[in-house]
């Protein structure tokens, strides 16, 4: 790949991260000008203790100095202390990171694959019943609030039919290990994963359908057909690869939406991930935790975008060789 392309993309991403870091600092400084006050409110502290804490948190320092300190601490992985639990924010995040990675990863992969296949099919059979029902399905699921879908599915499949547990990461007090633990967790993850998948299939389907229809009218498909290729070969070798290219960068943007959708959905299914941590941090509110989570969400979307750009550059010879 063109090294200048890579350097440009990486620099751009670093620039955006820097902006997010600064934005994050000033946004929370507006509401939380004295973290010591918030953290230790109601505790009996001697003036010297307060002074030493204020020293540590940099209260009273000029804003620029505070910002430098914040950047340095963040880069070292120190995101401050949770107001609620007084634990380091990084610990709170690490505890809930993996459940969300599993959930969002599964939902993203499933919705991407199903939505893309549906979109390919709908576009190839444009104007048929297949097309209009796939489009209608996508539009309707796209219009549903994720959390409402979570509520309806919970009521139907966990409360009434009892096919799935009502929430949590695994059975209470479970000591299972290995495969049975995995199956138990998968059973718990099924409903939240189905909810998020259903919620985002529509997005991919509509995007892929549009991209395919743009491709279908291309001359090189006519040429491929004229060469004597079968319809399925034309689709598989020529239409789909080209139609997938624009989808790469769109999925990265979409990743941010899935992550956002996880907030309410995790809260409803008591899935112990970042979403529920966000939900819990809203009460209080626990600003240091919110600040850390917001930084993490933004950073992961920026990284996802960077990866998508690089992947696009690798896949598309027009970018790779220009």
């Amino acid at each position: 790949m063109n090294p200048r392309f890579v350097v440009a993309k990486v620099t751009g991403a670093i620039g955006t991260l820097a902006f997010v870091l600064a934005f994050n600092f000033f946004l929370f400084r507006v509401v939380d000008d004295n973290p010591v006050d918030n953290l230790f409110r109601g505790r009996n502290l001697s003036p010297t203790q307060i002074a030493s804490l204020e020293e540590r948190f940099g209260v009273g320092d000029p804003l620029a100095l505070q910002f430098v300190k914040y950047v340095r601490q963040t880069l070292q992985g120190d995101l401050g202390l949770s107001i609620k639990s007084s634990r380091p924010v990084s610990d709170v995040i690490m505890d809930s990171l993996w459940p969300t990675v599993w959930l969002v990863g599964t939902a993203t992969a499933l919705s991407m694959v199903i939505g893309t296949l549906l979109g390919i099919h709908a576009a190839w059979k444009r104007g048929t019943v297949t097309d209009s029902s796939a489009t209608a399905f996508s539009m309707i699921t796209y219009s549903m609030p994720d959390f409402w879908m979570a509520m309806v599915l919970l009521a139907a499949f966990a409360i009434n039919l009892r096919w799935f547990p009502t929430g949590g990461f695994e059975d209470a007090g479970s000591t299972a290990t290995g495969l049975s633990a995995f199956l138990d967790q998968a059973h718990h993850m099924a409903l939240p994963a189905i909810t998020l998948t259903l919620g985002y299939i529509g997005e991919y389907m509509i995007l892929m359908r549009a991209s395919m229809l743009d491709t279908v009218s291309e001359d090189y498909l006519q040429l491929a057909r004229a060469k004597g290729l079968r319809d399925t070969e034309v689709r598989r070798r020529h239409a789909v690869p080209n139609a997938l290219l624009p989808l790469v960068s769109l999925s990265a943007l979409n990743f941010g939406y899935v992550l956002s959708g996880a907030i309410a959905v995790e809260a409803i299914y008591s899935w112990p991930g970042l979403g529920r941590a966000t939900f819990n941090a809203l009460e209080g509110p626990d600003f240091p935790v919110l600040q850390g989570l917001f930084l993490l969400f933004s950073a992961s979307v920026i990284v996802a975008n960077l990866l998508a750009d690089l992947l696009n550059g690798y896949l598309d010879p027009r970018v790779r060789l220009s």
Binding site: Y220, L223, H238
Partner: peptide
């Protein structure tokens, strides 16, 4: 058929 040689007759990827 010899198609018209604008960029679109050949698969770009």
């Amino acid at each position: 058929i010899v198609f018209q040689g604008a960029l679109h007759s050949l698969n770009p990827v």
